[in-house]
Design a protein around this nucleic acid. Structure first.
Lengths: 99, 99
DNA sequence: TAAAAGCACTTTGAGATACAAAGTAAATAA
DNA sequence: TTATTTACTTTGTATCTCAAAGTGCTTTTA
């Protein structure tokens, strides 16, 4: 397999996950509804994608409270940042090669 | 949904399909084995991806002969070129936005 | 020239994944 | 106190991915 293609990460073969990751690259943290509005997924669908990213340690989930209300936030991890950048680098190379 | 993410094409949410498309962007046409070597998929897997791309009119298949041997070639269509470029444009914007 | 092997895909079936609907538990409103 | 909303989670199905097995040639081998 050509090495740039090999370098693409299967986990990021998803529009929703790319949306989540690129949002978390530029935002310190986001909550469920912010992400939901951004990627336009249903609750169940978004939750599943977040779970996958969490299972791969690409994002971390923090469950806390604001007053008495639950407040869950999602943030990118170092590993996530690294993996996503490397995925984007591979894409960039593919794009460049096409001129 | 943010518009660059919306602009990403679900059909190209696949490393193998990105591999096929980017190869066909730079090669006039390729045959089954060339593509197979490039994307490193099994026969069945590659055939399925090619079928999906064909069903979406992103590639065209030409079945001919060289002497008495079958010769099937795959080439990108205008629609495929347009769709793939637009997908890459969206990715490029996402990459740029991250700096 | 008949049987075996190789080639270029295609078909099939199982496992994985994506997705929406329904469910749940806590908080707020009526 | 009961009803509604909020913020997810669970569940079941539909879709998709994939490798193994199959098909219909052609070519090689005996």
């Amino acid at each position: 397999m050509r090495k740039e293609i090999e370098q693409l990460n299967k986990i990021f073969d998803s529009r929703i996950r790319i949306g989540i990751m690129s949002a978390l690259m530029v935002n310190e943290s986001m909550n469920f509804n912010e992400l939901k509005a951004l990627v336009d997924a249903t609750d169940g669908n978004l939750a599943t994608h977040l779970k996958t990213l969490e299972d791969n340690t690409f994002i971390k989930v923090e469950k806390g409270f604001i007053g008495r209300k639950t407040n869950t936030t999602y943030a990118i991890t170092k590993a996530g940042e690294k993996a996503f950048r490397s995925h984007l680098d591979a894409l960039e190379k593919i794009i460049k090669n096409l001129g």
